[in-house]
Amino acid sequence: MCVGLAAKVVSVKDGTAVIDASGAKRDVSAELLEDLEPGDYVMVHAGVAIAKITSDDETESEGVMAGLASHSRA
């Protein structure tokens, strides 16, 4: 039940967003995220968009590992 669903926002209207998760479209609540726009990526839990996703996981992991390296040298 806790598995989050990463999805792309197709449209937003009156606190509801239509999302596209690998081709499957559904309505989710957009009430907890301000300024959501079509094209944004969001994490969805139990029908609610809970967070914006700001990059892909590879870029993210590169950043985290780079942080670790510079931290260790410091």
């Binding site: 994490m43 967070a51 914006k52 996703i53 700001t54 990059s55 892909d56 996981d57 590879e58 870029t59 993210e60 992991s61 950043g63 985290v64 590992m65 942080g67 670790l68 260790s72």
Partner: peptide, 28 residues
């Protein structure tokens, strides 16, 4: 990517011998 990175960070930080917290999931 994220799980392997997180485990690697735990290992590296543990070696320093001090309590730590790192956000390994900053994209969300």
């Amino acid at each position: 990517n994220e799980l392997m990175t997180a485990l690697a960070v735990i290992i590296e930080e543990s070696k320093k011998g001090k309590p730590f917290f790192v956000n390994c999931y900053p994209r969300v």
